[in-house]
Design a protein around this nucleic acid. Sequence first.
DNA 1: AAGAAGTCCTGGGCGC
DNA 2: TGCGCCCAGGACTTCT
Length: 280
Amino acid sequence: MPELPEVETIKNTLLSKLVGRRIMKVTATLPRLIKIPTPEKFVSLIKGKEIKHLFRRGKYLLLNLSGGYLLIFHLRMTGRLLYLPADAPVVKHTHLIFHLDNGEQLRFHDLRTFGTIYLVQEGELGLIRGLVTLGPEPLGPRFTPDYLREVLAGRQTTIKGALLNQELLAGLGNIYVDESLFRAGIHPARRAGSLTGDEVFRLHRAIRSVLEEGIRYRGTSVRDYVDGEGKTGGFQERLAVYGRRGQPCVKCGTPLELARIAGRGSVYCPRCQPFAAAAD
DNA sequence: AAGAAGTCCTGGGCGC
DNA sequence: TGCGCCCAGGACTTCT
């Protein structure tokens, strides 16, 4: 699942390849993935646009195009963006092909077809609700221990649910939430508003360190994720809890447990992440 | 209005 | 060996 470190890695691998390229044509074999504008308008509008810059916001990848346009991708569960030569075989689940002026291609590949694609003017970002309502970047200056304490205060939802809420914090998904909670020693089912000041501080640090490490290791390839060059990441070998149900905790050896929290499979160590708060 | 549940989708893993 | 069932989950919609 491409979360913040994966989208950041994809951006990094595509940046030097795409900037300065012109999109000559788009082939859309699954047009329903194009949400804005209509697929017909998308295909005609994008023709001839030059890619000026690429950046990431939360789990969104944004491409600045000439004429003040933004081409935006959200990969959801299984989306991939691949830079390939035109003669590379078009594999199953390839849904969109951007033909570039150097003869190479940018291909959008998505097994479960949850991914979404948008083309808007810079002033029309409000049309993409999930993008404009995003909370702060976890690695940016707005994400401070004080900010985290404020948004968690009074929340009845689980801490897991709060961290998955993109309006509170942008870019975390199931993998990095579980890893962050483990590093901070906090049970995923704890009420968000019940965390102590020390726990909030530890959680803030844990989120930052997990994401920084995730980026350093070029993302987590559990199943589908590959970067813009088709390469897998390396962070899956460093996961402490995600996908390790029943295996020994890396800190204390206790078998890790799996529970359904906030509608997601959640793996945690019952000893290092006790449910009972340490006496408020 | 916050929070929870249902929804979309396909391949892989499992039981029999 | 093969069929059918269930699971994975990001974010939107629907419900309570």
